[in-house]
């Protein structure tokens, strides 16, 4: 039977805020070959990574990786734009390290999206108000202009918005 899967992957990221100064983001990657877990602790308001822990539960590659030491390299880095470039540079480039970098990126992305979610909860459904809402968002954050199809110069949401 040809339709049987030859590979499957589940990647789950969650974010919680146990107290006002701490955010905890976890990523669990399980697939046919690999089972990795990662947890990062981030301190507000600087969003600085204060702690990180990981576990390689299963890996197809014989890795002599001292995961604790490898992960500790990212302590002190702040979650924000450009972080993926920084953690990629600080960590190694073996296959398993690349996966860990990707998972740290997922954890950081989750933290940023948890803030995005709070902002979007107030987004209006009305078309006219929606345009004003996103136009204002782009005015406040010029990097968003032309950052995706919905916020491109051709999009009705950007009608009347001057390029930054």
């Amino acid at each position: 039977m040809t339709d049987i899967l030859c590979f499957s992957r589940n990647n789950a990221t969650t974010v919680e805020q146990p107290d006002e100064q701490t955010m905890v983001s976890s990523c669990c990657l399980q697939d046919t070959l690999t089972d990795l877990r990662l947890v990062i602790h981030v301190k507000t308001p600087h969003l600085e990574i204060t702690n990180i822990a990981g576990e390689i539960r299963r890996s197809s590659e014989p890795e002599d990786l001292r995961i604790h030491e490898t992960l500790r390299k990212v302590i002190g880095v702040r979650v924000g734009p450009g972080i993926k470039k920084i953690i990629t540079g600080l960590m190694g480039t073996s296959a398993i390290e690349k996966k860990l970098v990707f998972m740290i990126g997922e954890c950081c992305n989750g933290i940023i999206l948890s803030f995005t979610k709070q902002v979007l909860l107030s987004a209006p459904e009305d078309k006219e108000k929606e345009r004003d809402y996103f136009a204002n968002m782009v005015k406040n954050s010029p990097r968003l202009y032309n950052s995706c199809a919905a916020l491109s110069p051709e999009s009705p949401l950007m009608d009347g918005i001057e390029p930054p």
Binding site: F7, S8, V15, K117
Partner: peptide, 21 residues
């Protein structure tokens, strides 16, 4: 309580010897 969650699922099978779906 979770403040955010993202789940991604990837499934792959072989259509034939030359194509992965």
């Amino acid at each position: 309580m979770l403040t955010f969650s993202r789940n991604k699922l990837v499934s792959i099978y072989r259509k034939d010897d030359r194509i992965l779906l």
